[in-house]
Write a protein that binds this DNA or RNA. Structure first.
Lengths: 328, 328
DNA sequence: TTGTAGGCGTTATCAG
DNA sequence: CTGATAACGCCTACAA
C-alpha cells in the first residue's frame, strides 16, 4: 500500500480510503489509485486487516468436502455473505481432521461466526462446542431449536410427505420406505413417511438398512432386501437421492422395470437425481435457501449476540420426474 | 497471549516460545503454559502471525467443491502440508466465483504457494495467471510440462491401457471407448486407448458423446448410441467412472447384462466405483499420491523458486471388480 | 484532500 | 529464562 502511495505521490491513507471504497476521495484519484494497484499487483493483506479492525468481517464455514449436498450450500454461502459485507473462510472436515479442529482453525482467523455443514457430531457434542466457542455457531443439516446454536435445516418430514402423497395420487397403495436410521435428519423424514401413510389409510413398511446411512450402498442393501421378498411393493420412498440411486440400480439389474413395476422417489434433488439415466422424482432441498438462511442466522447473532438462537426450516418442494409413475 | 503471561506471571515471549514449540523453555513451564492456554480458550491469531512472520507458512488451495475427485485430494493435502510444516487455506471455485477470484483471495492470505485443483481454465489462461502471481503455482489434473507452473496429473494413457489389456486378456476383441473430448485429461486417455488396441491388433471404436465431458450424462448418451447399433461391442472402456456409471445404468435398463453381455471399465476409482451396486473395474487414480505430489511440488518451489517447474505423473493401477468379465 | 501518530497480536532480536 | 524494543501492513482518529 505504501508502494502505491509512493508511486503516485499521495498519502497512504488516501490509498486506503480508495481501496476500502470509503468517502473522502475524488473519483479521479480513485481511478488512478485503482489502476496503480492493479499494475503493481497489489492485494490487501487480509491478516493485517483483520488484525487492525475492531470487528471481524469474516464468516467461517466448516464443511466436509466428501458429502453430496454441501458443495452447493458452500457455493450459495459466498454471495449471501458478500451481500452482508462478509468474506468467507473455509475449513475442511476430513477423515483425518475433525469438526473440532476445523472450527478451531476458523477461530484462529477470528471469524465473527462459524457455520458448520453436515458434521457427524451429536447434538450434545455440538452444544459443548458452541459453549466453548465465543462466537455464534450455526449448524446446517439437522437439529432442533436450542439455546446453544442456530439451526438451519429442511423440513424433512414435509418433503417425504410430498413424495408419499404424490405416489398415492398416482394410485399406489403399497409404499415402502428406506430409512436412514443413523443419520441425524433421518428421524424427521421417517416421521413424515409414517404420518403420510397413516393419513392415506395405508400400511407402513419401513426397510431398515445395515449401516442406516444416506449412501448408495444403503439403498442397494434395501433393494436386495426387497428382492428377497415374495412380492415387491409398487413404490419405494427413500430418505435421500443416493439411497434411491443404489436401490434403482439393484432393481434394474434384477430386471425390475422402473417405474413400470416399482416407482422410486428420493430426497435432495442432488446432481444424481437430474441425470437422464436416473431422472428421479425427488423432494428438492434448496441449497441456495439453506446457504442464505445460514448466513442470515449468523449475521443476526453477530449483530445481536444476546438474541436467542433461531431455527430456520426450509420447505422442500417436489420435483416430478420419471422414476415414479401411475400404478397400473 | 498477554493474558496467559499475566495469568501465569511470566513473560509474553516465553509463552510465545512454548506455543510455537521452540527451544528455550523448561518442560515444566511448557505444561503450565499449555494448560493455561487451554483454560483461557486461547487461539493464536493467525492474521497477526502471518503479518509478523517473514515467510509464509501457508499453502493455498483453490478447488471446485462440486467436482467428484477433488474432495479426496483436498483431504490428502492437509496431512501432506502439515508434514512440511505448512497450514492449508481453502478457497472455492463456484459458478459465481472464478478461479481468478479464488486465487486472488489466497494471495490476500499471503500464501507461499497456490495449488489449483480441477480448474476449467485453459493452459494459456493458467500461464497468464501464473505469471501475474508472484508465488509458485501448482495445477493438479491435466497439463504438460511448462515454464510457468508445476503440473501434477495421473498417467491417463497408461491407466486406459491397463484397462484395455485386462479386457484383451479376458478374451474381448470388440472394445469400444467412450471419449471425453471436452476434458483436458481426455486427449491423453484416448491416446492410451488407441495405442492399446493397436498393440493388441484390434480395431478401434471411439464413441464421442454430445458434451464430451466426464459426466454420467455423457456415459448415458454413449449408451444410447451403442444401443442404437445392430450389434453391441463385448466391452466398453470409458474415460472416467461417472461415464461408466451412466453407461451401465442405461444398458442395465435396456436389459443388457453386465458383465454377461457387455463388460465395462472406468477411470478414477471414485466412490461410485466401489459401490456394491456398481462394482466397477477401474484405473485407480490415487488421490493420496496426487495430494502429496502437489504439496511436494509446491514446497520444492517455495524453497528454491528458481527451479524449473516440474511435471509429476502419478501412475494409475487397475482395480479389478466385477463389471468386466471373461468373454464367453 | 493530506499528514501524523498510534495500535491491533504476534514474532524476532538483543542484552541481561 | 526475562525484559525491552521494534516491526509486520493495515485502519482509525484527529488535526492541518
Amino acid at each position: 500500500m505504501a508502494d502505491i502511495a509512493a508511486h503516485l505521490g499521495v498519502s497512504r491513507q488516501l490509498v486506503s480510503i480508495v481501496l476500502r471504497d470509503m468517502p473522502g476521495a475524488s473519483s479521479e484519484t480513485r481511478t488512478r489509485v485503482m489502476q496503480a494497484a492493479h499494475e503493481l499487483g497489489y492485494r490487501p493483506h487480509i491478516g493485517a486487516r483483520t488484525l487492525r479492525q475492531a470487528k471481524s468481517r469474516h464468516i467461517g464455514v466448516a464443511f466436509a468436502p466428501a458429502h453430496a449436498t454441501e458443495p452447493d450450500i458452500v457455493a450459495a454461502i459466498y454471495p449471501a455473505a458478500a451481500e452482508h459485507g462478509y468474506q468467507v473462510v473455509l475449513s475442511a472436515q476430513t477423515p483425518t481432521r475433525s469438526t473440532l479442529q476445523a472450527v478451531d482453525e476458523l477461530l484462529g482467523y477470528r471469524c465473527a461466526a462459524v457455520i458448520i455443514l453436515g458434521t457427524d457430531l451429536t447434538d450434545k457434542e455440538l452444544r459443548a462446542l458452541a459453549k466453548r466457542v465465543t462466537v455464534p455457531v450455526v449448524v446446517v443439516g439437522a437439529g432442533n431449536r436450542n439455546a446453544a446454536f442456530d439451526v438451519v435445516r429442511s423440513a424433512g418430514d414435509t418433503g417425504i410427505e410430498l413424495a408419499v402423497r404424490h405416489l398415492v395420487e398416482l394410485g399406489h397403495r403399497q409404499i415402502s420406505y428406506v430409512h436412514g436410521a443413523a443419520m441425524p435428519p433421518g428421524a424427521l423424514r421417517l416421521e413424515g413417511y409414517l404420518r403420510a401413510v397413516a393419513d392415506a389409510g395405508l400400511d407402513s413398511d419401513v426397510v431398515t438398512t445395515t449401516g442406516g446411512d444416506f449412501t448408495e450402498e444403503a439403498g442397494a442393501n434395501a433393494g436386495r432386501q426387497l428382492l428377497g421378498r415374495s412380492v415387491l411393493p409398487t413404490a419405494v420412498v427413500t430418505g435421500n437421492d443416493q439411497q434411491a440411486v443404489g436401490l434403482m440400480f439393484i432393481l434394474a439389474r434384477a430386471g425390475v422395470a422402473i417405474p413400470g413395476q416399482v416407482s422410486v422417489t428420493g430426497f435432495d434433488d442432488s446432481r444424481l437425481a437430474s441425470l437422464s439415466s436416473v431422472d428421479l422424482t425427488t423432494a428438492r432441498q434448496d441449497p441456495q435457501q439453506m446457504g442464505e438462511a445460514a448466513v442470515s442466522a449468523a449475521v443476526r447473532r453477530i449483530d445481536r449476540p444476546a438474541l436467542r438462537p433461531s431455527l430456520s426450516v426450509v420447505e422442500p418442494s417436489l420435483i416430478v420426474r420419471s422414476s415414479a409413475a401411475r400404478h397400473a
